[in-house]
Simulated assay, not measured.
Amino acid sequence: PYTLSEKEEHVITELSLSGVTGWNRYFTEVMSRAKYELDGQSLNQGQILKYLYSADRDQRQRAADAFTRGLHDLSHTSTYVFNMLAAHKRSLDKMRGYPSWVASRNLSNELDDADVEALVGAVTSRYDIVQRYYRLHKKLLGHDQLYDYDRYAPVMDEEWHVHWDEAREMVMESFEKFDPRVATIATKFFEGHWIDAALAPNKRSGAFSAGTVPSAHPYILMNYTGTLRDVMTLAHELGHGVHQYVSRQQGYLQASTPLTTAEMASTFCEMLVFDSVMAELDDPRVRLANRIEKISDTFATVFRQISMNRFEDAMHTACRTEGELSKDRLSELW
């Protein structure tokens, strides 16, 4: 019911190249090229973010301050891009007749609005769980107070560096134990050089697996720094990649899956590796440290994402009632 006429859809698609698609590309390139000055180094986003996981609290604080300064310098650009994207969505939603700002996203994920509202309500009603965790985290770290740069602090001073070849072996062994067919497909990503993992100047941060078309294989982008978390990220993205690889047989129109389905494969593969790692650990301190890290990542997946959703709700609502939003207004909503 939200599809327009063929001519209107054609116009929207053509204009998107210089509109919403162009703005998204511009924002990605700006953020990828941004530099953050830390201890005499000029770092990109992927490089500086790893220091937020450092066991050195002073280093975490310096990294957080440097990252904040860098983002502040980009605030005019990011605010303008944000407003352009929000305005585009507002106009498109109005043209298509969507009842709310989130309706199109829920539809693409094949979810009912009521189900999403139930999830949001369930999570926001239990923020006390996160508060309890942070109280425990503070106790384990031995701090009187936690700050934003302490959220991902490890509870052990020793840092575990995992070489790329070792990470590959850890992931492949876990996949092989589960099902050799999964390992066989995952091997193609390594041997075919379908993974871009090395840190590089002007490279975007984060990680994702990009499904292409049935006639081509998926590609994985990540920023590997040698932490155990990076090993889990590798397993996570390979879960997406294997899923996308086998989905190609469904054909172009059916190969893609909604986000809710896609994340099942990736999270499952990530947990395969986590369970394998835990099975090999005997030191109770190391086991505790890894469990704390996994809990932290899980909270980021569940509670942080819902918090982002709450900001998006406030932002889109304000955009549709107030018009273009200033940097200060966006900060207030955040």
Score class of each variant (00 low, 15 high):
160 W>D: 10
162 V>M: 06
162 V>L: 08
162 V>T: 10
163 H>I: 14
164 W>T: 12
164 W>I: 15
165 D>L: 15
165 D>P: 11
166 E>H: 14
167 A>P: 10
169 E>R: 15
170 M>H: 02
171 V>L: 05
171 V>D: 08
171 V>P: 08
172 M>K: 06
172 M>E: 05
173 E>M: 05
174 S>T: 03
175 F>L: 04
176 E>T: 14
177 K>H: 09
177 K>I: 03
178 F>H: 12
178 F>T: 11
180 P>T: 10
180 P>A: 13
181 R>W: 13
182 V>A: 15
184 T>C: 15
185 I>T: 07
186 A>V: 04
188 K>F: 15
190 F>A: 01
190 F>I: 00
190 F>L: 00
191 E>S: 12
192 G>V: 08
192 G>W: 04
193 H>Y: 00
193 H>A: 02
193 H>M: 03
193 H>Q: 06
194 W>T: 09
194 W>G: 05
197 A>F: 11
197 A>C: 03
199 L>G: 06
199 L>E: 11
201 P>A: 00
203 K>R: 08
206 G>D: 10
207 A>N: 03
209 S>V: 01
209 S>Q: 04
209 S>P: 02
212 T>E: 10
214 P>M: 00
215 S>H: 01
215 S>L: 07
216 A>Q: 10
218 P>N: 05
219 Y>I: 15
219 Y>F: 14
219 Y>N: 14
220 I>E: 01
223 N>M: 11
223 N>Y: 08
224 Y>G: 01
225 T>I: 09
226 G>Y: 08
226 G>N: 10
227 T>C: 12
228 L>G: 02
229 R>H: 15
229 R>M: 14
233 T>A: 12
234 L>N: 06
235 A>Q: 07
235 A>P: 09
235 A>G: 13
236 H>S: 12
236 H>K: 08
236 H>A: 09
237 E>N: 06
238 L>C: 09
239 G>L: 11
241 G>P: 11
241 G>M: 08
241 G>Y: 07
242 V>D: 02
244 Q>N: 09
244 Q>Y: 09
245 Y>P: 00
245 Y>A: 03
245 Y>Q: 03
246 V>P: 01
248 R>E: 09
249 Q>H: 06
249 Q>G: 05
250 Q>D: 05
250 Q>A: 07
251 G>T: 03
251 G>D: 10
253 L>M: 06
254 Q>N: 12
256 S>H: 00
257 T>N: 01
257 T>F: 06
257 T>Q: 12
258 P>H: 06
259 L>H: 02
260 T>S: 09
261 T>I: 13
261 T>V: 12
261 T>W: 12
262 A>L: 01
263 E>G: 05
